[in-house]
Structures are given as C-alpha cells and as structure tokens.
Design a protein around this nucleic acid. Structure first.
Lengths: 111, 111
DNA sequence: CCATGTACTTTGTAATGCAAGGTATTTGGC
DNA sequence: GCCAAATACCTTGCATTACAAAGTACATGG
C-alpha cells in the first residue's frame, strides 16, 4: 500500500543521496533505510536504470571488508535530472495537497 | 515519468473528493482534472477497487443529459481509510523531504 | 571450516496509471 | 429523420516499478 506511493520517488531519493557524494548501492540502501523502508531488490535495478539514462557513471573500488564496491557518480545530466525531479516533486505534492485541502494552499505542520 | 509518482496517491485523491460529497466517476475525473492530469482509464478501475474494499457504496441516479450516473458514497470504512491515508501521505512526504533536505526538517515555501 | 557480514545481481509477482477502444443515452443542427 | 457531439459507462493490454526471494562471491573470526 505504502509501496505504491514510493513509485517514482525513490529514483529522486537515490539521486539526492548521490548529490551529497559518490556512493555504492549497498551503502545507498543503508542511508535511505534511516528515513524509509527500502529493499535491495528495489535499488539494484534502479541503479541500472540510472546508468541506462546516463545519469550516473560508475567505477570500482576494492574493499577490505568484502567484495569490490561499485561506486556511482552523478553525471551533469544526472544533476539536471535531479533538479528537474525536485521541481516535479514539489509540484506533485502541491497538486495532491490542493485536492486534500481545496480551500487553502498552506498546511499546518503538527510536529 | 510523472505517472509513477501518482501511484497510490490517486486513491487518496478520489477518497478526498468523495469526502466533500457523493459523486460519479465521470465527474470525479473532471474535478481532479482541475488540479492534475488524470484519465478515465485510471479512475474506473480505481472505483471498482474502492467498492471491493467496501470503502464506497453506490446508487444510480438518472440524468437528463445522458446515461444514468453511478454515484459513489464514502462508507464509514471509507472515511477511516481516508484518514489513515492522509496520515500516511504526510508521513511519506516528510520521509522524502528528509532525504532531499537531510539537515533540516522544515522547508521554505517559495509561494 | 563454517557462520556472519559485506556486496552484487537476477527472477518472478503484484500493483496501478494510461492509451485506446468500445457501448449507450441525450441533445441539437441540418 | 439523421448524424455529430457531449455525457457517461466500461474493458483490454501495455509499461513501469517496488519487493521478496534466491543466488553468487569475498573477507573475517571463532
């Protein structure tokens, strides 16, 4: 159920994580896990998609605690995509909120 | 692309529209069209799902301008589902925003 | 040497948005 | 009377994506 809400937003989240610095899939999963439920089976195919879109480039780095890590780095196109998706995200949230609270554009923030 | 973001949120939107008063699918599409892109092929199957969940009940009303309208009315369970989904929605937005802006919990609202 | 943690990947399933197409009713123009 | 347009319903098939589950491989410690 909540699963459906995530569709499309996770891509944005991964790009946002990479904007803070290069990382590898296993670590991205761990970073996102602090904020939300996320599984490996979601992220690995997503990384492939980002690569196919040329939004990330990759390089391998050997690890002393396991197999080599495949690092992902945002390309210029990736940065542009991130910016576009952030705008899209805000528009999307506004759209939904305008349906939920049709008379007012601003929301109270309980916490 | 934007399509993916909508997954799961449209159900919430339809329930929110129905909370403001009984309506029929064709009209719900038109109401939501003011705020967002939405198509009939999305809404009709969605209405069926809401019925299967017993979140809405239906009744027919004849129209003088076309075929009979199938009105949907929120059941008590539907109202409860709406409340739960609104909470879920706010939590979801907070989660994503916390990934996008990791250092601060509050956002500036440009407009 | 074997369990645990790290790290990558693939396969199949479920959910859902949408385009496209189809049916039926009413009204209004020609 | 007839035909287009608006109203209103519905279905089929496709694409996308989240996830569980399973599998592979390396490193370390008991």
């Amino acid at each position: 159920m909540k699963t459906q809400l995530k569709k499309g937003a996770l891509e944005l989240c991964v790009l946002a994580v990479l904007a803070r610095g290069d990382s590898y899939a296993y670590d991205i999963v761990n970073q996102l896990s602090r904020s939300m439920a996320i599984s490996e089976g979601t992220v690995y195919p997503l990384m492939r998609r980002l690569q196919d879109e040329a939004w990330v480039s990759t390089y391998l780095v050997e690890s002393s605690s396991g197999p080599s890590r495949k690092y992902y780095r945002l390309t210029p196109a990736g940065h542009a995509a991130l910016a576009a998706m952030q705008t899209e995200w805000r528009e999307f949230v506004s759209e939904i909120d305008s349906v939920l609270v049709p008379s007012s554009a601003s929301l109270e923030l309980p916490q």
